[in-house]
Structure formats: structure tokens, C-alpha cells
Design a protein around this nucleic acid. Structure first.
Lengths: 106, 106
DNA sequence: TATGTTTGCAACCGATTAGTTTCATAAATA
DNA sequence: TATTTATGAAACTAATCGGTTGCAAACATA
């Protein structure tokens, strides 16, 4: 059972759940109201998100509030970092080309 | 057949392929040498990466060089942007709390 | 205490996935 | 021209995925 952040965000419903609870904690029922699937399907998604620690629970009586573990999102950002360096370098290279053209025009 | 960037990067082998060809274009055979799977399995991954435009081909005789389409990676960065705002805000809030504590100590 | 509500979990199902083996095509080379 | 090399694609398989229905547990309320 592979359970990493990348596998978790691969599913569009899970990305939608993440977007939903990003700003405020929500109960499974409230979350499920936003989708055309059953509550149980959403519950399964929440389990996957919880297992890879993208989401945390907060019990309140019989209700459970789910909220985004924003720090885990940084893991994706960290992975992207190496590629960000590449596209920034390429952009700078393009920048140099452009400024060279400008100089030649002078 | 869902074929988006998020589904593409969900597989660890595909992420490894992306890392491999990020800096220099490579042929399928050269890429496959780095994995314990068959060349055909790698070929399938390359097809998926190509279909979602994360990777581009450059034919050279009978060889095909695959390289990373770095601009497509920005799509992930764009998606992360909304959450980056959140963790930066939370960091600033923490920062305010810390400076408030400092002030109180004075 | 009896009933209703919120939730998670198990069992099942069809579709998809990642891998394999086998084959076809196209280019380089003897 | 015959052979080797580089590659993609098809057919098949076991495992996984996302969904469903049904049930049990825990808490709230009448």
C-alpha cells in the first residue's frame, strides 16, 4: 500500500477536498455534501489523506473535524524546488540572450 | 483515460525518469538502464509522460531523445501557489506572536 | 433507556494501473 | 540485401483504485 503525498494528490476528488478544508476545518458529512459521491467514498479519501499526513483530525464529541496539514504540502514544494531552479536558470539564460540582442542593437 | 500532470507524477518510477532527463535529453534505452524493469515498461511511462506533455521527443535517426518540458512543471507550481499563500500567512502570524512575546518581555 | 445521528470499516465490484512477453516497424550496418 | 539495433504497440496478468452497499460503534437527544 503505497501512501505518499504524490499518490494522494493524484486524485481530483482528493485535491478538491484539500481545497475545501484548506481554510477551515470541516466534518466528513459537510465535505461529502460538496460531491456527487457517497459519504463513504469521501470517508475513504479522508483516510488516505490522513494516512499520508496531509490532513489532521480533531475530535469534537461525535463529530470529527478535518483540516489541512499545510506543512505536508511543503513536501511537494521541496520536490519542485530542484525543477524551479532549472526553469529559473533557463529564464535567466533567455534574459541574457535578450539583453545581448539589445546591446547589439545599440 | 485521465492523463494529467498529477496522475503522471504519482508514480515513483516516472518521478525518477523526470529527474533523470531534467538536465539532459536521453534515449529510452539509456533511461531504462537505470531501472530494474524492462525497456518496454519504461517506454510505457514515457508514453504517459509524453501524453500529458511533461516530456518532449526529439527524433535523431532511429534514436529518440526524451527531455523534460520544464514549463509543464510550472503547472504543479501554479497549483501549489494557493497553499503557499496559506503557509506564508501562518508563518507571519507565528512571527507576530513571537514578536508580541518579545515585546511583553521588555 | 430507546432512537436518531455521525462516523469508520469490511466486503464486494468494475475499471485502471504497472508490469510482462511477444511482435512489428524503421533505421543503421555488414 | 540480410542482419542488427532502437523503438513503439498489442495482448495479457496480477495488483490496486475508486466506488458502492451494509453494518457496527460511539455519541446526542427524546
Amino acid at each position: 500500500m503505497r501512501r505518499d503525498v504524490f499518490q494522494a494528490i493524484a486524485d481530483p476528488t482528493r485535491r478538491a477536498i484539500i481545497a475545501l478544508i484548506a481554510l477551515q476545518a470541516m466534518t466528513p458529512n459537510a465535505i461529502a455534501d460538496n460531491f456527487n459521491t457517497t459519504r463513504q467514498a469521501v470517508s475513504k479519501h479522508l483516510r488516505i489523506l490522513t494516512e499520508c499526513e496531509l490532513v489532521k483530525q480533531e475530535h469534537q464529541g461525535r463529530e470529527i473535524y478535518y483540516s489541512l496539514e499545510i506543512n505536508k504540502m511543503k513536501e511537494i514544494d521541496k520536490w519542485l524546488e530542484q525543477y524551479r531552479k532549472i526553469w529559473e536558470t533557463r529564464f535567466n539564460q533567455l534574459d541574457q540572450v535578450l539583453s545581448t540582442i539589445k546591446k547589439q542593437k545599440k
